[in-house]
Design a protein around this nucleic acid. Sequence first.
DNA 1: TCACGTATACGAAGGATGTCGTAGACAGGA
DNA 2: TCCTGTCTACGACATCCTTCGTATACGTGA
Lengths: 142, 142
Amino acid sequence: MLRSYEDLRIKEPNLGRDSLTERELDIMSVLWRYESGTVSEVREGLADEPGYTTVLKILQILEEKGAIRHETEGRAYRYYPLVAPEEEGGRALKKILDKIFHGSAELMLARLVSDTEISRDQIERMRLLLEDAASRAEEEDR
Amino acid sequence: MLRSYEDLRIKEPNLGRDSLTERELDIMSVLWRYESGTVSEVREGLADEPGYTTVLKILQILEEKGAIRHETEGRAYRYYPLVAPEEEGGRALKKILDKIFHGSAELMLARLVSDTEISRDQIERMRLLLEDAASRAEEEDR
DNA sequence: TCACGTATACGAAGGATGTCGTAGACAGGA
DNA sequence: TCCTGTCTACGACATCCTTCGTATACGTGA
């Protein structure tokens, strides 16, 4: 990179607001997967089942943050996500792209491909997706 | 998704090791960008310049965590990253892929393309990258 | 020599997270 | 009726992050 500190054009913005923490993300993940869940159900969905009240507490924190809501179901509450995974994912990806890969989407994609197990089918579909994006961009130019 | 909670094959793992927090990531980002930095330099690299000792403190925490090291330079310390951005980025991407996109790399890529501004050049290079990956995978099959 | 500016070290304060224990509400069965 | 099991509510507590204020060291210039 080798930029000079006198280069004041680049400043690391501190955007990161009420992003989800590790445990909160665990729980959102369960809710996204099953579309909703009671405290017990969410608890069962976690690999290390924490205490019942622990899960409840974090659900309450998430509700406080506006990430989920609940409805009464019998004697229990059923929680529903209010933010879609794609939305949260977009935020998270943008953060990584900016702060870690400094805007290079291809570096990021290279790391994704080399670092994780992705099936050939998936790679093929991803390739087609980019082909579409490229041709769509070209069309816009005309 | 509509899976049943009786489907116990899927459990949300709690991997969450000592991952970097928001502010820590801000500071790592500066160090990655410039390859090294003193306290003052890092501070200047942040959009909202926090207090000098605040930056120092977080650098000390990062050193404690093993993410950076320092050398004496004159009367000051110069800090160097010990983890590469690609490494940290790989971890972060895997987390997002698993917990938010539930393993669907193409959904993730779709969101990346639709959500962020990526130049046509970049898209083209990404497409080539996937082409390579695909043909390499095919070769391995033979 | 002495003040000043620049460094790091130390520790405290405030807030959030993640853990849970306990209390209280309530339904259903013995 | 009363016990038991299942809920949520509330609050405690340890830990961590982030923010600084203050103390201390040290080199340089007047």
